[in-house]
Amino acid sequence: MFPKPIEKSSRQWQIGYQVLLPFAMLLWLAPLIAVALFSIRPDADFSTGNYWGIPSSFEFFTNYGQVINSAMPRYILNSFMITLPTMVGAVALSCMTGFALGVYKFRGNLLIFFMFIAGNFIPFQILMVPVRDLTLDMGLYNTKTGLVLFHIAFQTGFCTLFMRNFIRALPFELIEAARVEGIAEWRIFWYVVLPLMRPAIAALCVLIFTFIWNDYFWAIVLTTGENAQPVTAGITSFNAQFRAMYHLMSAGSLIAALPPVIIFFLLQRHFIAGLTLGAVK
């Protein structure tokens, strides 16, 4: 493993490393700590220019209380109801497309793969009007379903790239061996390939969860109200007509950032294994 495991170093190094870690983290997270400080300031501090000094009063309970008592929980629930189905849908679809493109050799294989990649590179803002009209025609405007369907479709591009490369890296002999046994192709997918893809699935879940959780653009294009909008749109709803409520936005965004971090923390081990293999061509 690289670098040299710290356990094999001298005692001083080990202690030094352990001490350095929290300091490095604090430095790295300094902007985040600033957000945390903003989130406990009173509104007036932003009018007097007191961004970095000691808050003129500590408003932790007021601010977070206000956030929790707003429509925030509703928005967070919406976020989950949008993010989780998208995650499942996009990962499921791309397991299939990845399998098809990674295992089989047929005419147009590369072409189709390239199409998925190209779609991934487009400036997605330009899809707005056509996608809005499409969603409308299907009667899904301002519904979570409409948002989920689009996200699944769009994320399939990135996920396919990821899954296809991952499957490429699997030992092909396993599939050959299964074929020799006369096992049906879909069974090979289900019983041979899919179990091997678990790390990749975990990794993609974390990434997709993060992407979708943080989506703001499509949330405001395809939905309008509390009944369907995710938390990213909810955060800015604290803003007044002419006044940004920085303290509430800070508090709200910290709360909103927790789910992806927790997911990452929980899936970390699988996540890391997944990206590793996937990256190998």
Binding site: N214, S253, A257, P260, F264
Partner: peptide, 11 residues
């Protein structure tokens, strides 16, 4: 260390 990636870009 991963946190910056998941927090809202607005903030």
């Amino acid at each position: 260390f991963f946190f910056p990636f998941v927090i809202s870009q607005v903030v």
